[in-house]
Amino acid sequence: MYILATNWSSAFDVVIFGFVMVFVILILLVLIISGFGKMLAPTVRVPKTPKKANEQNNNFPEENNEIEYIEGHLSADYSAAIAMALHLYYSDVHDEESHIITIKTVERRYSPWSSKIYGLNNLVK
């Protein structure tokens, strides 16, 4: 009986208007955030060398002074790959070595601690 007496039309009004309003407000937020995101997202300047310049570059590296940059977002997986490459490179970089390995014979030094004769000749007085 109560269900019949309930003002269902006003209840549905609240539900439909409320739910639509939640969506509208959040869709507006999506648009605002997306717009700001495009403006403020961190961009990385990636040098873009044209093909011809690239070919020239192989022959005369000094002559290729002009580098064209493209503005773009560098995704996290690219960043991770670059970071890994740098890490491997720098972990491998160390002081120059001669690469000559020498094994020298070590002269056996006399030590009273290991000498049997010394121990026998120097008895406790």
């Binding site: 955030i33 700001f36 995101g37 403020l40 997202a41 961190p42 977002h73 996290a76 997986d77 960043s79």
Partner: peptide, 13 residues
């Protein structure tokens, strides 16, 4: 993978 979000964005938000 999600893109990187700048500090400026996080402050303005």
């Amino acid at each position: 993978q999600l893109r990187m979000v700048s500090t400026k964005e996080k402050i303005i938000f």
